[in-house]
Design a protein around this nucleic acid. Structure first.
Lengths: 163, 163
DNA sequence: TATTGTTATACTCTATAACTATA
DNA sequence: TATAGTTATAGAGTATAACAATA
């Protein structure tokens, strides 16, 4: 009898589930980490397609924004602010400089360091990127409402900040 | 005069900002995408350290969970459910099988496919992993409250679902 | 001694093309 | 023809060690 039960269970090998199309995610959908990952992937995908015209990644957008907000910032400071490791920032910065969006000026106060500034075309591109970002943001807000967005931002920042 | 202004601006090259320690993130903190990424990284870091004892990554936890919930599932179904690409699932599954957590049985209904099942030790490990996950979840909930967690889950799932 | 920018390197994730054996 | 599992491969993203110049 136990043998029959095992045999039946063994025969239920998932082929039928494929046709039915429904797979039970179990408790997964109730976990914050899983929900955060899915929402973040969806948001990033929308961001990337939204900013396709300016060909700026989320990371590059962050770098341009923070340099625009703090002209003269050094690479090490950008890395600290955005959680980028210094070795990984070199290629990113070089790419932005090659595209004539960012400029490395010599620092007056520390001959080891650079002072980062947006170029004129860097500022122009950032302005356009911000417009596209606002459209992206509006698309997300449409899904959860203005109040939902405010509440979501509050909760996310609480999660991210401090231990 | 314009020259003097430019010279002064150029001298403000960021060295002072380093000592002050404060860097203006600008509008970044008000963007959903930025907040989502920071929260997700924080949550994943906590998850990984929480499940250090069982040495299970978030992705592996999802795979074990979904196989446990749908015994006999085929790899292709797991991939569809979790958004994993089939070629990337091969190594992940092989690793779980080498650790004797998952078993690939031959499918009765389709000789191309496998029927995936947790082994006894796979089930035992998943049980322990769930306990650790619950502790992790509680740690996150402590930051935003029980009601905050419920609301956050609701908003995140709304963001992730459908267009 | 410590820090800045850098190179080299490696490991994980993710993505695409193409093969084989079945369906 | 299409699909399941697989291989090979390539590209991002992220991580550490170590170096020269400078503080």
């Amino acid at each position: 009898m136990s043998n029959d039960a095992n045999a039946m269970r063994r025969r239920n090998d998932g082929a039928r589930r494929t046709q039915s199309g429904r797979i039970d995610a179990g408790p997964l959908t109730g976990y914050l980490g899983y929900a955060l990952r899915r929402a973040q992937l969806a948001a990033y995908a929308d961001f990337i397609s939204s900013l396709n015209e300016v060909a700026i990644s989320p990371g590059e957008f962050g770098v341009l924004t923070i340099i625009h907000q703090n002209p003269g910032l050094r690479p090490a400071d950008v890395c600290t602010a955005l959680g980028i490791l210094k070795p990984n920032f070199v290629a990113l910065l070089t790419s932005l400089e090659r595209r004539d969006l960012v400029e490395r000026r010599d620092s007056q106060s520390d001959r080891r360091a650079y002072a980062l500034h947006l170029t004129a075309s860097g500022r122009a591109l950032l302005q356009r990127a911000r417009t596209l970002q606002a459209e992206h943001e509006a698309r997300l807000e449409k899904k959860i409402g203005a109040r939902g967005r405010t509440e979501l931002l509050r909760l996310l920042n609480k999660l991210a900040d401090a231990s």
